[in-house]
């Protein structure tokens, strides 16, 4: 059974532990701007929404990559960027309709969530269970993905 990140914004307090854990795990710095998960703040409503790649089936990023730099990890189902192969052309960053694959100017490559190889640090770091790593069927992601795929 594949697992997926389940995000429940109602439980999020905006502490940003997930962003710090992500940037430390992946970039060895405590820098939210290098995080692959982002917490968006809705000041008017006083709410926080953690947001990252849903590892969608369409894999728009992978489909459009001109140099085969994005591959599926058969164990986790994550779409992973092979940094040595990525040339930094950024086509995936405009192709992903979720906006969850981004250009990292310090490396000249793109970065996205890879589920930390099956042990996502954001979920471990979240003190309120707003981010959990659960069986994929339980996350309701199917609807979200279908919605974003959209069109007429």
């Amino acid at each position: 059974m594949l697992k997926a990140l389940q995000i429940e914004p109602a439980k999020c307090t905006g502490c940003l532990q997930c962003e710090l854990a992500c940037s430390w795990e992946n970039e060895q710095v405590f820098n939210p701007s290098k995080s692959r998960i982002k917490v968006f703040t809705f000041h008017d409503e006083g709410r926080f929404v953690p947001y990252t790649c849903t590892q969608c089936t369409e894999a728009w990023c992978m489909q459009t990559c001109p140099v085969d730099a994005i591959v599926i990890n058969e164990t986790t189902g994550a779409k992973e960027v092979i940094e040595e192969v990525c040339v930094g052309c950024k086509v995936c960053t405009i192709a992903c309709p979720f906006g969850t694959i981004n250009y990292n100017s310090s490396s000249g490559k793109v970065i996205k969530c890879d589920l930390c190889g099956g042990e996502p640090e954001c979920a471990k770091a979240c003190p309120t269970d707003a981010i959990t790593y659960v069986d994929a069927d339980h996350t309701g992601l199917a609807r979200m993905r279908a919605h974003a795929a959209g069109g007429d």
Binding site: P97, G99, N102, Y103, S105, A148, G150
Partner: peptide, 16 residues
């Protein structure tokens, strides 16, 4: 701007 530019496609494509 480089962060999350893909959502511009998402918003256009879903006609939300």
């Amino acid at each position: 701007l480089t962060l999350h530019v893909g959502v511009l496609r998402g918003l256009i494509q879903t006609r939300v």
